[in-house]
Amino acid sequence: MLSYTLMTCDMDGTLLSDDATICTRNIQTIRQAIGAGLHFVPCTGRGFESLNHIQETLGIYQKPGEYVISYNGALITENSHNDILYEDGLPWDIASALYDFGVAHHITMHIYPYGKVYLYNYVPFERAFLEGRMPNIETFEPSLDFLKGQTVYKIVYMDPDLPTLNRYRQQLGSLLDDVTVSYSSDRYIEFNHKNVTKGTALRKLAGLLHIPISQTLAIGDNINDTEMLKAASFSVGVHNLNEAIRPYCNVVTEATNNEGAVAEAIERFILKQ
């Protein structure tokens, strides 16, 4: 019998190695746990469409009764047809204003409508980082009107300098009153609708599946995983975690993301006899 039946797992820096692959130890252990009845749910800031190859590797691609939490918790989809179970996008006026600010300040931006990601001011530094991580579409549009009528789940600003990202946050001022702000990958500041977090989505999915929170486990590595770690009954940080999230972890793995940290968590806390 499994110790936990719903596991939410961050992708970059947690499940994925630094080269954006999944180590053999993780693949084998996750497949074993899924076969034993675990709902293994990728919980990511990315869009669900970028996880197809990851789901194929883990054996859950287009599999009924399996799920993805994407856009930092703004969307929950069921794998077989990517049907939307829950969504909470940015209000259009806020999304448009965030885009306008990014254009005015020549910021590298990610824009996430359903099933796609657009990159604005797609500089070589960011191209190199995203290669092999997720498909994207470059845009040069001066306003967000090219997505008018679509839900925008998340907008991201990229800069490797944290003080610069914090300055943008300060300059945006009251525009962020109805926005959840998070940081990831030591290069992104991310904007979602107010109250959208990975933790909110974890609780929402558990409720939809009639799984008690006491049966949930979460694993992550960075600041945008904080609410997910706080929401789960048992929280695991990987060895390479951002120290800011250590207080929210019940345990930290001995293995890094390159060494099978997710497999270690499953072996120790889910498949244990």
Results as ranks from 00 to 15, higher is better:
residue 142 P to N: 05
residue 27 I to R: 12
residue 61 Y to I: 03
residue 104 A to C: 08
residue 37 G to H: 10
residue 27 I to D: 10
residue 65 G to K: 04
residue 34 I to A: 08
residue 125 F to P: 10
residue 152 V to N: 09
residue 58 L to W: 08
residue 27 I to K: 12
residue 121 N to Q: 15
residue 94 I to V: 05
residue 125 F to D: 15
residue 89 G to L: 00
residue 50 S to L: 09
residue 149 G to Y: 05
residue 29 T to W: 08
residue 85 L to K: 00
residue 122 Y to E: 11
residue 143 S to V: 03
residue 136 N to G: 11
residue 35 G to Y: 05
residue 51 L to M: 15
residue 120 Y to S: 15
residue 90 L to N: 01
residue 139 T to L: 10
residue 80 S to T: 03
residue 151 T to N: 10
residue 97 A to D: 06
residue 125 F to G: 13
residue 75 L to E: 01
residue 47 G to K: 07
residue 59 G to I: 03
residue 96 S to R: 03
residue 26 N to E: 04
residue 99 Y to K: 00
residue 44 T to L: 12
residue 29 T to K: 13
residue 91 P to S: 00
residue 87 E to A: 02
residue 73 G to C: 01
residue 91 P to A: 02
residue 139 T to Q: 09
residue 140 F to K: 15
residue 37 G to F: 10
residue 85 L to H: 02
residue 38 L to E: 05
residue 126 E to Y: 15
residue 102 G to I: 05
residue 149 G to S: 05
residue 153 Y to L: 00
residue 47 G to L: 11
residue 40 F to S: 06
residue 61 Y to A: 11
residue 29 T to H: 09
residue 84 I to K: 03
residue 82 N to T: 01
residue 136 N to R: 10
residue 30 I to K: 12
residue 26 N to H: 06
residue 69 I to H: 01
residue 132 G to C: 07
residue 64 P to N: 08
residue 66 E to I: 02
residue 96 S to F: 00
residue 52 N to M: 14
residue 78 E to N: 00
residue 40 F to K: 09
residue 121 N to C: 14
residue 155 I to S: 06
residue 106 H to W: 07
residue 112 Y to P: 13
residue 123 V to H: 12
residue 44 T to W: 11
residue 109 M to A: 08
residue 97 A to Y: 01
residue 119 L to W: 12
residue 127 R to N: 04
residue 76 I to V: 01
residue 64 P to E: 12
residue 85 L to F: 03
residue 94 I to W: 00
residue 68 V to R: 00
residue 53 H to R: 14
residue 99 Y to M: 01
residue 122 Y to N: 14
residue 87 E to G: 00
residue 111 I to P: 05
residue 144 L to V: 02
residue 58 L to C: 09
residue 95 A to P: 01
residue 116 K to L: 14
residue 58 L to P: 10
residue 120 Y to W: 14
residue 117 V to E: 14
residue 149 G to L: 06
residue 69 I to P: 02
residue 146 F to M: 07
residue 111 I to K: 06
residue 132 G to L: 05
residue 74 A to E: 00
residue 25 R to E: 14
residue 141 E to F: 08
residue 60 I to C: 01
residue 123 V to C: 11
residue 104 A to Q: 15
residue 30 I to P: 11
residue 63 K to R: 15
residue 65 G to L: 04
residue 155 I to F: 05
residue 74 A to T: 00
residue 64 P to V: 06
residue 33 A to D: 07
residue 39 H to F: 12
residue 38 L to S: 04
residue 145 D to R: 08
residue 81 H to A: 07
residue 145 D to G: 04
residue 59 G to Y: 04
residue 26 N to F: 06
residue 41 V to P: 08
residue 75 L to Q: 03
residue 116 K to M: 14
residue 86 Y to T: 02
residue 76 I to Q: 00
residue 102 G to Q: 04
residue 87 E to Q: 09
residue 41 V to R: 08
residue 109 M to Q: 12
residue 107 I to R: 13
residue 137 I to T: 15
residue 114 Y to Q: 11
residue 135 P to H: 05
residue 117 V to C: 15
residue 131 E to I: 00
residue 87 E to T: 02
residue 42 P to W: 13
residue 85 L to D: 03
residue 126 E to L: 14
residue 134 M to N: 12
